[in-house]
Write a protein that binds this DNA or RNA. Structure first.
Lengths: 208, 208
DNA sequence: GCAGCGTCTTGACGACTGTCAAGACTTTTC
DNA sequence: GAAAAGTCTTGACAGTCGTCAAGACGCTGC
């Protein structure tokens, strides 16, 4: 309460800062190794601390993982906001959206395979389910902002429910990620053209 | 070569039979626990053998897993063949296909979450990649047989590449599986109606 | 019955894991 | 500057894992 100036921060803030610092180290490790092969010692090795410190800031390994997942969400959710707000035509939005998809696929593949890993693990481990369900809903909203804005710019109503639109685009993205990681160079171009072909189908037929 | 009658089988056949028997025990365990949490001892517990026998029939844990994945494929690949061959109209095929999707989702959820688990793990573990890529291609062909037959019956050309059609339907299926396992009762009805809405979009617009 | 072979069990090994307690080091407080 | 509180390291624990060697069991051919 008192003394929280620019330099000096409250102990609670510092505590949270350390948790975030550990979360970032953990996310790096998780993105490299995947959920199953990531140990607390390996996470600590990728940070500037020793392995015991994790239990000072997190009660559990699971608490750390869930914290990481939620922390990661905050970075994801605004990814396409610029695409939505900056586009002035349906075609322009589509191009920008596809380009952003390709960019995120190329630059953040480890984070995305981690997401798919965690989502799949939640089918086996109930403790992950709540966080995963919440993020999945957030991602669906994110996609829907793109699709509904696309419909608005095209002056045509949407022809698909938000959940279906998300599932379908997610399927394309996941396939592209798989191909990209497997070393197929055509995966990036492929996702772009597939998205260009698919998005118009999400709108009601144009009044011709 | 000699003496292979109805009753007596060659040692090589018996060897293969044991491998398949172990593969089935392994698949049961993998479907319950997932790739990461499945140990060789647990697999052996779900069979009538002890944990050491695995190393008699398989060199590695990984060799067992890959063998399982390939073994599992043989059961998958013909799943929708009856749908394709028995349908006489586009609407009939669509209904049968959607019903089969719901049935497989309801009755074989563990096997499918295992498939998604292994496919995701292949993004981290290269040794799984070859088998996964091969199965993915086989599944894509399976889906394409459905879609192209659907187009044939509807007397309209397809408007989507095989890979896109597979990715899109796979996305819907995965979302439904996730919902179903998370205990959402509406997941089964939802996938049926979503597929009904999506499949017509895979064909070129009807000449009206 | 005995040797030989294929099959399977048992028990052990080294490595790795999450967890936690004991204490060292640093910072804050009075 | 001493005491107290907060922060971090070290080392150990119990457990699990994949792997493998040694040997037991059962079957076949002689």
């Amino acid at each position: 309460m008192a003394g929280t100036q620019t330099v000096r921060r409250s102990p609670a803030d510092k505590h949270d800062a350390r948790r975030n610092q550990l979360a970032e180290s953990a996310l790096t490790t998780l993105g490299e190794l995947g959920y199953a092969r990531t140990s607390l010692r390996e996470i600590a090795n990728n940070s500037e601390f020793s392995h015991g410190v994790v239990h000072y800031y997190f009660h559990d390994k699971l608490e750390l993982i869930v914290y990481c997942v939620r922390y990661y969400k905050a970075q994801c959710v605004t990814r396409y906001d610029a695409v939505v707000s900056d586009s002035t035509s349906a075609e322009g939005l589509l191009d920008a959206f596809a380009a952003k998809l390709v960019e995120t696929l190329r630059d953040e593949a480890p984070m995305h395979r981690l997401w798919y890993d965690l989502r799949t693990q939640s089918m086996f481990e109930e403790s992950l389910r709540e966080a995963v369900t919440m993020i999945d809903a957030t991602l669906q909203e994110m996609i829907w902002r793109v699709v509904s804005r696309y419909a608005e710019l095209a002056d045509r109503p949407t022809a698909m429910a938000p959940s279906a639109a998300y599932a379908v685009l997610d399927g394309l993205f996941q396939q592209a990620l798989l191909g990209h990681i497997a070393g197929q160079p055509e995966a990036l171009d492929s996702i772009a053209s597939q998205v260009h072909g698919l998005m118009p189908l999400m709108l009601a037929p144009a009044p011709s």
